[in-house]
């Protein structure tokens, strides 16, 4: 899983497989951090958020 574990070889299989894996994990981690960070900033700014329009998540719940 990591280059320092002894099974690791710098070969095509490891680069493609682990590359894909770490790519997906990075996207998820960045996405979650972006959302949490943005939400935190909005909360600090005191934006209640209940006034904004609902585009983008109209399918996800009821009206806010």
């Amino acid at each position: 899983m990591f280059p320092f574990s002894f099974e690791w070889h710098w070969d095509m299989s490891h680069i493609v497989f682990m590359g894909g894996l770490w790519y997906a994990i990075c996207i998820m981690a960045l996405g979650v951090n972006y959302v949490l960070g943005k939400s935190f900033m909005q909360t600090i700014k005191g934006d209640s958020g209940h006034g904004h329009d609902d585009h983008g998540h109209d399918g996800h719940g009821e009206h806010h």
């Binding site: 959302v35 958020g49 996800h60």
Partner: peptide, 14 residues
């Protein structure tokens, strides 16, 4: 508010 923003922001990047 934080939860509300989080839910909203998650949807935006879903």
């Amino acid at each position: 508010p934080f939860f509300h923003h989080t839910a909203h922001n998650f949807h935006e990047v879903m």
